[in-house]
Simulated scan of single mutants.
Amino acid sequence: MTQTPDILCIGSVLWDIIGRARLHMRAGSDVPGRIERLPGGVAMNIAMTLTRFGRRPAVLTAIGRDREGEELVRAAELLGIDCSFAYRSEDLPTDSYLAIEGANGLIAAIADAHSLERAGEKILRPLEDGRLGRPGAPWRGPVALDGNLTQALLAEIAASPLFAEADLRVAPASPGKAERLAPLLAHPRATLYLNLEEAGILCQAEFATAAEAAEGLIARGARHVLVTDGGRAAADGAAEPGAGPRVIEAAPPAVLVTRVTGAGDTFMAAHLVAEAAGAPRAEALTQALAAAARYVSGDLAL
């Protein structure tokens, strides 16, 4: 691809192996269903959603030069995602994610993002070698950043002049990695996307609602946060004067849930696009919830 990307997605790009059953499941369940392999990872899911909105995303990630990596790059580029800036390792295997979903939601998942973690700052080289930016002339566009990066690298990004002019959009990869975002919590150019559990972990508190969580995050120094809570009301919290009410809420559309993996990433991408188009906070929140609802219902039309 030769076009300059209009957004960078930094983080996990891997193969999702998802087993789905239409029955309720519990630990030890053995039921019929479907198993599929799809391009996935937080950065990849966000990039895929962005292409459906007509955007040109590029991924900064680690992808192996193994067969799985070559197949993943081909699949991503067919979707309109620029992989030319990815760190391609001869030694590290391509990462993967394994999840089991039932009619009652996500049952269990294992994320193997060890290659991304081991690659570390190597994935950021295009931001300093002149391809996407350089010292003194940093990247000025939006950046979707995911919590599969190590806490050390996220802390480095939080303080790096290479990101001083970027519009940072940050999400944890899972509740288990929410604490990694602590260095970015009070970043003056960061918008954080969290679910209710992740917000509680990051604040080391328990919240009953998304609105309460948004208030708690703003109190801890966050500039702008979006908090979701499954089928319950989501919240947008903003600390900046002139942004309107400190916290606003909206309920997601009621839909039949057919999948859950990737829903939060779709919400984040849709919200980013809505804000970039100039949508007010309430409208951007509503549009993002509608896109996520369409995704979990199995309808990809945006």
Rank of each mutant, 00 (worst) to 15 (best):
L8S: 12
C9A: 09
V13F: 02
I17Q: 12
I18P: 05
A21H: 04
R22K: 09
R22N: 12
R22S: 14
G28A: 01
A47T: 08
A47M: 02
M48P: 00
T51I: 13
R55I: 07
L60I: 11
E70D: 15
S84I: 07
Y87V: 12
Y97H: 12
E101Y: 10
A108N: 13
A109W: 02
D112E: 13
A119W: 05
E121G: 04
I123R: 06
D129F: 05
D129E: 15
P135S: 01
P138L: 00
V143S: 06
D146Y: 02
L149K: 11
A152E: 13
L153K: 14
A155T: 02
E156Q: 14
A159P: 08
A173R: 09
S174W: 01
P175C: 09
L181N: 08
L184R: 03
A186D: 01
H187V: 00
P188M: 10
R189D: 09
Y193T: 05
L194H: 14
N195E: 08
G216A: 01
A219V: 00
G221K: 10
H224F: 13
L226Y: 07
A234H: 06
P241V: 09
P245H: 03
A250S: 15
A251P: 03
V255W: 08
R259W: 00
V260G: 05
A263W: 04
F267G: 05
M268L: 11
L272S: 03
A277M: 12
G278S: 05
P280G: 08
A282D: 14
T286A: 10
Q287I: 01
A288I: 11
L289Y: 07
A290L: 10
